[in-house]
Amino acid sequence: MTRSCRLFRDGVATFALLAVLGLLALKMNNRPELIQTGSFFVIDGDTLSSDGQRFRLLGIDAPEYRQQCRRNGIDWACGEEARRTLNTLINAGTPECRGRDHDRYGRLLVTCMAGELDINGEMVRSGMALSYGGYTAEEHAARQAKAGVWAGDFERPKDYRREENVAQSNRSNPLTGLIDYLQQLVGWRTQ
């Protein structure tokens, strides 16, 4: 077999293999859009539940339920307020939430609409959620208006979660607890 025939054969085989891989990738990426309507239970400012399934609002990150923020030098329960705001928006009409992908916790990532109102965007516009891969114009408007969390000082929800996870792991480690106790006893603790 001549060299040019082998090259042609190898080229055709490579093209066929790539075509099959491309078709498989398209098939795997062609997930149907899931649509959920009806009543939802609001867990926090960016998480819903319905019929035992959890949904995470796509493109936003709201303060955690127990998270505190500061406004005019006074702590306020921004996480609880974010939950109340989402609850009001979800119960204002008949919401429809659509999504294809799941996050690492198995929650369906959704965009929720109540009529013409994009609930995800409204959470950011009201200052009760931050843009997280979407809704940058809404976040800019909320910052300009000093709406919600932008009216004072706050810790970004992802930073709050990270610190809570570190604190939780320290509480579950008896050696860390003992070291903390001894540091407090001797006065080495700086805060």
Rank of each mutant, 00 (worst) to 15 (best):
G187D: 12
K146Y: 08
T85Y: 09
M28R: 15
L24Q: 10
L109M: 10
V42Q: 08
R84V: 06
H102D: 00
G52C: 01
A137W: 07
A145W: 12
T37F: 02
Q67W: 09
S131G: 13
L58K: 14
R125F: 07
L58I: 01
A145V: 00
Q144Y: 09
G134V: 00
P95W: 06
D51R: 14
C5F: 06
T14W: 15
R107H: 08
G99M: 04
L86S: 01
M28F: 15
L89V: 03
R107S: 01
L178A: 10
H140V: 03
Q184A: 08
Q168F: 11
G52F: 08
A77S: 07
I90P: 14
N72R: 13
V166A: 13
D101W: 11
L130V: 01
A137V: 07
G73L: 02
G99P: 06
E33V: 13
Q67G: 08
I119T: 05
T136Y: 14
I60D: 04
E163V: 04
G152S: 09
K27L: 10
M28P: 14
W76A: 00
L23P: 02
H140Q: 13
M1Q: 08
A145H: 00
W150P: 04
K27F: 14
R161S: 12
Q184W: 15
R161C: 07
T85R: 14
A151S: 11
Y65D: 02
